[in-house]
């Protein structure tokens, strides 16, 4: 891969659900290495559908490329290691009885040897500041802790890009602050879907606005957040 290959390339992606609902009407997104990008828009805009395409849970085929690799069926095992997808509800993301088993799940299913798995679990937990939590039971954690562990479950796969769905939803102010600091510190390419416009302004230099299955704006956060007409026409508010 050379320097100009984007980490994420989505080219004219279209998708409709079996019930006929057209969720994506030709979406184009390019994200380069090291960028931290916010994805905003009203509910039903197609953000979650787009995210499900990024590592092939919904099949985008050649229309979606991760670091130059199309998300075809043959490539899916590598794609899933490259795209760290964290779902909105950490109780869906953390499906193992203990924290260790959850963080180990990704590397283990990548076929890594057990020593390497252990090393990566330690590293990922340390990165989210939860180094002592390996032996804890998942259902004993607070929601803020669960969100951090959920991020660790994909960090342990050493992804090219981190994709988060609503990371700050449901957090109390202190847990939200801790999460924002964590995202700020992580040296990774990121695409974050959110309604939290304050976080967008603070954390993401670039933002993409989606509505009705299309990208309706893509540019500097500082500029787009000043365009009140644009924001209001897509059900958003200036923070």
């Amino acid at each position: 891969m050379n320097e100009t290959t984007p980490t994420l390339l989505v080219n004219d992606l279209r998708f409709s659900y079996p019930d006929g609902h057209q969720a994506l009407n030709g979406v184009d997104v390019v994200i380069r290495r090291g960028e931290k990008v916010a994805l905003v828009g009203p509910n039903g805009a197609g953000k979650s559908t787009l995210i499900l395409h990024l590592n092939g849970i919904l099949n985008g085929g050649e229309q979606v490329q991760i670091a130059g690799m199309p998300t075809t069926r043959k490539n899916l095992p590598q794609i899933r290691a490259k795209v760290g997808l964290v779902f909105q509800n950490p109780d869906d993301q953390l499906f193992s009885p203990t924290v260790f088993e959850d963080v180990a799940f990704g590397p283990l299913h990548m076929g890594l040897p057990e020593d390497e798995v252990r090393r990566r679990v330690g590293y990922a937990l340390a990165q989210v500041g939860m180094g002592d939590f390996a032996g804890r039971l998942s259902h004993h954690l607070s929601i803020g802790q669960k969100k951090r562990i959920a991020i660790a479950t994909v960090l342990s796969m050493d992804p090219e890009i981190l994709v988060l769905d609503e990371p700050s939803a449901g957090l109390d102010p202190r847990a939200r602050r801790a999460l924002i600091n964590l995202l700020d510190e992580l040296p990774l390419t990121m695409l974050v879907s959110t309604h939290d416009m304050l976080m967008v302004r603070e954390l993401f230099p670039r933002m993409i606005i989606m509505d009705e299955g299309r990208v309706v704006a893509d540019g500097k956060t500082a500029v787009l957040l000043e365009d009140t007409t644009l924001l209001e026409s897509h059900g958003l508010e200036k923070p």
């Binding site: 499900l52 290691a81 260790f100 799940f105 299913h109 798995v117 994909v154």
Partner: peptide, 24 residues
């Protein structure tokens, strides 16, 4: 519905029908 979402979260982390575990 939850089982669907959990299944997606498993697939997203490389699950392909063979559940591997480490027994420490």
């Amino acid at each position: 519905e939850r089982s669907d979402r959990v299944y997606n979260a498993m697939v997203a982390r490389g699950y392909n029908g063979r559940l591997l575990t480490m027994n420490p």
